[in-house]
Nucleic acid binder design. Structure first.
Length: 420
RNA sequence: GUGGGUAUAGUUCAGAUGGUUAGAAUGCCAGAUUGUGGCUCUGGAGGUCGUGGGUUCAAAUCCCAUUACCCACCCCA
C-alpha cells in the first residue's frame, strides 16, 4: 500500500467544510479590509528564496525541497508565502499601480523538510496578508487587527499577541555590537548552539530555550532601548494604534523571527492549546525585501497564518463549525423506469435550487431509506411502478414520518419540500 | 539533525508470565411476511497482528533492524 508522504495530511470529504468555513471568513474579512487575492505558483527559482528568505536561515539551509528540473534549473517548492508574492509584484509591474498594494492568499501550500510533530508538517497551508508601499505603522496594526478579527470570527479564544521591534539596518548593527559585548564575558557558559549564534546572529541567543542561556540573557540589553529615532517612533505609533483599538499585547523583546527579511515590527500570535508548536500566526515588517528581490525600494508588512494550526486550536477548544446543510430530498426508486424518472426529477429539483440525491445502486427500498437517513435527508420520495402509473407520489418527512401525496412532477414535489 | 514512546479488523481498543481456528464495541452489508429510515434482534463480510530478519518445538507476545505515527528539542505557521 502506498501511503501519503510523511508530514502530509489528507482533508477528508467529511471534514472539508471546516476548511471552507474558515476560508470563507478569511476572504470576507480581507475584502472588507481592501485586500485582493493573489495566487502564485507552488514552485519558483531557488534563487528567489536564497535572496528573499535569506541564505543563512534554517529554512533555506536545511529545510527546502530543492531539485533540478529536466532543463537543469534549480527549482524550490515554496517554503513560505511572501517571496512569491513579492516576485509577482515586481514582475508584473504592480508598483506602477495605485499604492499601497494590499494582497492576501488563502490555502497557500508551503513545504519544509521538518521532523513532524503536532502542529508541524512538511506540507502545511498558510493564509497570508501582504501590504506593499505603506511605511506607516498603522499598516502594521491593520495586519494585526485583521488576524485578530479572523480568530474572533472563527471563535478561537485565549490567544496571546506578542510584538517587538528588531530595528532596521541603521540601528541593528549597534545593538548587535552591544549584545555581543554583553555576551562576551559569559561566552563559555553558553550552549554550543548559542556559540555559533553569537557569531551568526546574536539576536537568536535571546530566543534560546536552554535554562542556562535564559539566565544569561535575562539581563541582556534590550533592542528596544537601542532603536534609532525612526524605528522608535514606528514602534510608538504601532502601540498607539493597538491601544486605540483596545487590543491586549505583550512587548516581548525575545521575539526573533526566523526569516532574515524582517525589519522594525515583528509579531506572533500564540495559542496555548496545541502543544509546543504554539505560533499560529507570525509576521512583521520587511522594508528592504522588495528591493532585495530586484524591485523598487518600497516598504512592506504582512504575516503568515498556519491553517492547520488554526484548525487544531479550534478543534481543541471545541469551537463549533457549522455543518453543511442537509439534503432536502432523496428520491428512492424501484425498477428500471422509475430509476430513470427519479434521476430526471432529481435533476429538475437541483436546477430549481434544492439539494437532492437519488439512487445509483439499485438496492432495496429499505437500504435506500437507510442511506437517505445517513445523508440526513429531510424528505424521501419512493418511486415505483404504482407511482408511475398513477402519476402521484408520497413525499415523506423523515423527522415526523408523515407522508404527503403530491403529483409526480418537479414543481409539485418542490412545493412539498419547500423550506420554511 | 537529536532524544523518548507507540504500531492488532474501516474506526476505537482487548489479548498477564510465548501455546489450538486472534476477540469486543462501533461502522459496513444483508435478513426479521412480499416497496419505507431511526430503536431492537439475527446473520455475513473484513486482520498474513506496520514491514523485514532472528530466538524457539511454538511468536501478536521475546530480540534486532526498518518505516510510519505520537511527544519533546531545534526551528517555524
Amino acid at each position: 500500500m502506498i501511503q501519503a508522504l510523511k508530514g502530509t495530511k489528507d482533508v477528508l470529504p467529511q471534514d472539508s467544510y471546516k476548511w471552507q468555513y474558515i476560508e470563507w471568513h478569511m476572504r470576507e474579512i480581507c475584502e472588507r479590509y481592501g485586500l485582493r487575492e493573489g495566487r502564485t505558483p507552488v514552485f519558483e527559482h531557488t534563487e528567489l528564496f536564497l535572496r528573499g528568505v535569506g541564505d543563512t536561515t534554517d529554512i533555506v539551509q536545511k529545510e527546502m525541497y530543492t531539485f533540478d528540473d529536466k532543463g537543469g534549473n534549480s527549482i524550490t517548492l515554496k517554503p513560505e508565502g511572501t517571496a512569491g508574492i513579492v516576485r509577482m509584484f515586481i514582475e508584473n509591474g504592480l508598483y506602477n499601480g495605485p499604492q499601497p498594494t494590499k494582497m492576501y492568499y488563502v490555502y497557500c501550500p508551503v513545504f519544509r523538510y521538518e521532523n513532524t510533530q503536532t502542529g508541524r508538517l512538511r506540507e502545511h497551508h498558510q493564509f497570508g496578508v501582504e501590504i506593499f508601499g505603506a511605511q506607516r505603522a498603522s499598516a502594521d496594526a491593520e495586519c494585526i487587527m485583521l488576524a485578530l478579527e479572523l480568530f474572533e470570527k472563527v471563535g478561537v479564544r485565549d490567544l496571546a499577541l506578542r510584538i517587538n521591534s528588531i530595528g532596521c539596518p541603521a540601528c541593528r548593527p549597534n545593538y548587535h555590537a552591544t549584545l555581543r559585548a554583553y555576551l562576551k564575558d559569559q561566552y563559555n557558559s553558553l550552549c554550543d548552539m548559542c556559540k555559533t549564534r553569537f557569531e551568526k546572529n546574536p539576536l537568536r541567543v535571546l530566543d534560546c530555550k536552554e535554562s542556562h542561556c535564559r539566565d544569561i540573557v535575562k539581563n541582556a540589553p534590550v533592542i528596544l532601548d537601542y532603536l534609532c529615532g525612526g524605528c522608535g517612533a514606528h514602534m510608538d505609533e504601532l502601540k498607539r494604534c493597538l491601544d486605540m483599538m483596545r487590543v491586549k499585547y505583550d512587548i516581548d523583546p525575545f521575539i526573533v523571527r526566523g526569516l532574515d527579511y524582517y525589519t522594525k515590527t515583528v509579531f506572533e500570535i500564540i495559542s496555548t492549546h496545541i502543544g509546543a508548536q504554539g505560533t499560529v500566526c507570525g509576521g512583521g515588517r520587511y522594508d528592504g525585501l522588495i528591493e532585495t528581490v530586484g524591485g523598487p525600494g518600497m516598504p512592506g508588512v504582512g504575516f503568515g497564518l498556519g491553517m492547520e494550526r488554526l484548525l487544531l486550536t479550534a478543534q481543541n477548544q471545541g469551537v463549533r463549525i457549522p455543518e453543511p446543510p442537509a439534503f432536502d430530498l432523496f428520491v428512492a426508486s424501484v425498477g428500471e423506469e422509475a430509476h430513470v424518472r427519479a434521476f430526471w426529477l432529481a435533476m429538475q429539483l437541483r436546477e430549481a435550487g434544492y439539494r437532492v440525491e437519488c439512487d445509483h445502486t439499485e438496492r432495496s427500498v429499505k437500504a435506500q431509506m437507510k442511506y437517505a437517513n445517513k445523508l440526513r435527508a429531510l424528505h424521501v420520495a419512493v418511486i415505483g411502478e404504482d407511482e408511475l402509473r398513477a402519476g402521484v407520489v408520497n413525499v415523506k418527512t423523515m423527522e415526523t414520518g408523515e407522508e404527503k401525496e403530491t403529483s409526480l412532477n418537479a414543481p409539485a414535489m418542490a412545493a412539498a419540500i419547500k423550506r420554511g
